[in-house]
């Protein structure tokens, strides 16, 4: 018991030090009255340069498009690592031990409900990322909604196997198209991931803001398939 007490005391001491820093930060914090230089630039120029109503989308997809490409890459790598780590040695754990436990059959209500709701959830996800440049939402949110539709399918029928090949194909194609649009922007417009590849159009219409709806839809598909593959790999290990 004694070393644990000392460990806890050290932890509390450390927290007190961090807490003191936080308190001084909080006491010295003054909310800005004006937008700072970067934010002012984005607020003034987004409508005419990018043509999106949602300024956060303009920053994520165009102003900082390269960062988003990096983020999607990080997400892809972590999904790949989850799949790799869980795939290793899965076969040996399946062979010995208890035979397959009989599962409680899924109720009529759940199976019918999931069949009814999943297409609607997928539709909501698609709506969210297609309208990402006009309303709150976008590729990441829409992708997460699509993945939760997949989650509903998994919960209604735990033995269901998603086709990993299909998920991989959707993911690779949308990633390739994302980079391809970026390179086309380099060739035919102002730079990598420039959205002025297509006409900007009028602010507030669905077909406006150049290629932003296209890019955000691709991000949505890519993120949705990555999350789905993470969920599928984590749930498939359950059957051992």
């Amino acid at each position: 018991m004694e070393p644990i007490m000392i460990k806890n005391a050290i932890a509390l001491l450390l927290l007190a030090a961090v807490g003191a820093i936080f308190v001084s930060l909080l006491a010295g914090y003054m909310p800005d009255e004006q937008l700072n230089l970067t934010a002012r630039y984005y607020a003034e120029r987004t409508a005419q340069d990018i043509g999106t109503a949602n300024i956060v989308t303009a920053i994520v997809v165009t102003y900082r498009g390269l960062d988003t490409l990096g983020e999607v890459t990080v997400l892809f790598i972590s999904a790949a690592i989850v799949g790799l780590v869980l795939a290793q040695g899965r076969l040996p754990t399946n062979v010995p031990g208890s035979p397959q436990q009989p599962r409680v059959p899924v109720g009529e209500l759940l199976s019918t409900g999931s069949r009814l709701l999943t297409p609607l959830i997928l539709l909501l996800g698609i709506y969210v990322f297609v309208n990402g440049h006009l309303t709150p939402g976008g590729g990441f949110q829409g992708g997460a909604i699509i993945a939760s539709g997949m989650l509903l399918l998994l919960l209604a029928d735990p033995l269901k196997h998603f086709s990993h090949r299909l998920i991989d194909v959707i993911e690779s194609i949308s990633g390739l198209l994302f980079v391809g649009i970026g390179v086309l922007g380099l060739l035919y417009a102002g730079g990598f991931l420039d959205n002025r590849l297509l006409p900007i159009g009028t602010l507030g219409e669905l077909f406006s803001a150049g290629v932003i709806p296209l890019i955000y839809s691709l991000i949505g598909l890519k993120v949705g398939s990555e999350f789905s593959s993470m969920l599928a790999s984590l749930s498939e290990t359950e059957e051992a």
Binding site: P136, F140, A144, S148
Partner: peptide, 15 residues
């Protein structure tokens, strides 16, 4: 921050 709210609701508390 509605964008962040949507992301957090779908990802942080759901998935």
């Amino acid at each position: 921050a509605p964008d962040v709210a949507m992301t957090e609701a779908a990802i942080g508390s759901g998935l």
